[in-house]
Design a protein around this nucleic acid. Structure first.
Lengths: 232, 232
DNA sequence: GAATTGACTCGTACAATGTACGAGAAAATG
DNA sequence: CATTTTCTCGTACATTGTACGAGTCAATTC
């Protein structure tokens, strides 16, 4: 028992040796900490993708031994959870905007959300498995507030939140997938062309090619918001 | 080179020994085949989830050696791809419905889609990574056709398809996640309660508890369809 | 019928990876 | 100084995907 770390903050006592006299470590590596681990994990994920995050590699980047991480973190999953939630932190825009423009607020909220995830494409793949971290909850809370202030009835609130959330999730995942498979994209349309008798419609519409992701996203968003407010 | 299998069908020459005289194999195991491998993989996934699919385990279930699978399949990823697409096969409902009821068709299409995925909850987690298999394409094709016949302009077609697709994806993933974390659900609301000052809205609406997933899904769908047809 | 080829199976072995364990170092505390 | 707490990390192991190559058996060719 007595889980080593639990919720312990890294209360480092400010190890104030300006330089270790024996210059074994050329780099003045700051000490390990949960924050540093997560930040570096995000770096690594951004640079190498989901598959690139190995505990050993992460430790290397931190100038630490692999097992040192495990004092701060229970396991790799926790690193991923924390990395995901970190990336989802909502930085309130300086201009809050007039509170009466609820629709603009919602749209801003969701666009920002989607943008945050697209900045870190690996985050999309984590969504299906990981739990909701505090930053995710903040976003849901803000969304709920905006909708509520827009006059969405309490009975419809959850449905509204989930619908919009689903839109973000779906759009982000789709977008991220097609970014990753990049070169596949042409190949995919090729494959389609070969079987164009079976898929005439999507072959003709070139569904897998020139897609206006941003446009699709905001259009779908408009439809949802229209619908949500239409039935009051 | 000469990739062992490539697109080769398993053209088994019908090994017609009714029973091997020396009863070494009590079980009349049918021979290995891509179909059997994928079918068994789906079984395993249904029974044990994504993490439960190990090549050795799969081979065991098939009464084969682990490495035998690799003649039929390039790697584990391919097994997952095939399992996902198998599960997404569209079985056309016997009553096709009148062609003029395009909206009913679309709704049926998407409900069926979602139902197929929820029957196999592991499929949701695969969506972000895997490519589009033939069965997925069939579904997109049918969706495109229905929308097209509904009068959606060609210019809007892709946007419409993707919006609806995103809705299915998002809803399915959200739903599957909350199914899996089941017991977490109560815990999640607890955690929320502890921090209810920070998340008053979603705490009050009990967002993480009593959710009417089916209702949310069809309602959001209605909004999207309304919007899609409203602007003609 | 003998030899060859090709389709298919599978045991062994290895590399990669997450992490249990426990020995320490270093700082805080008494 | 002694003791406890906090933190680091080398070693070792279990798990898992899969490369390799030998082996089996039927079909084909000579």
């Amino acid at each position: 028992m007595a889980a080593k770390r639990s919720g312990a903050q890294n209360r480092r006592p400010q190890r104030d040796d300006v330089s270790s006299p024996s210059g074994a470590e050329p780099r003045g590596e700051p000490p390990l900490s949960l924050e540093r681990i997560v930040a570096t994990a995000v770096e690594l994920l951004d640079a190498e993708g989901l598959g690139g995050l190995k505990m050993r590699r992460l430790a290397d980047r931190l100038g630490a031994g692999a097992m040192s991480l495990y004092w701060h973190v229970d396991n790799k999953e926790e690193v991923l959870d924390l990395a995901l939630d970190t990336v989802l932190e909502y930085r309130r825009s300086p201009d809050v905007g007039e509170p009466e423009d609820w629709r603009g607020q919602v749209i801003h909220l969701l666009l920002d959300w989607r943008a945050a995830m697209l900045r870190h494409p690996w985050s999309a793949a984590l969504l299906p498995r990981r739990a909701l971290g505090p930053n995710m909850l903040v976003r849901l809370e803000l969304l709920g507030r905006a909708l509520s202030s827009a006059g969405v009835a309490d009975a419809d609130l959850n449905g509204a939140i989930w619908s919009l959330w689903n839109h973000v999730i779906g759009a982000t995942i789709t977008r991220a997938k097609f970014d990753l498979t990049d070169d596949d994209q042409a190949a995919a349309q090729m494959r389609l062309a070969g079987l164009s008798e079976r898929y005439p419609t999507i072959e003709r519409s070139r569904l897998l090619l020139d897609n206006d992701w941003d446009g699709t996203f905001t259009k779908g968003l408009d439809f949802l918001l229209d619908g949500l407010t239409a039935n009051r």
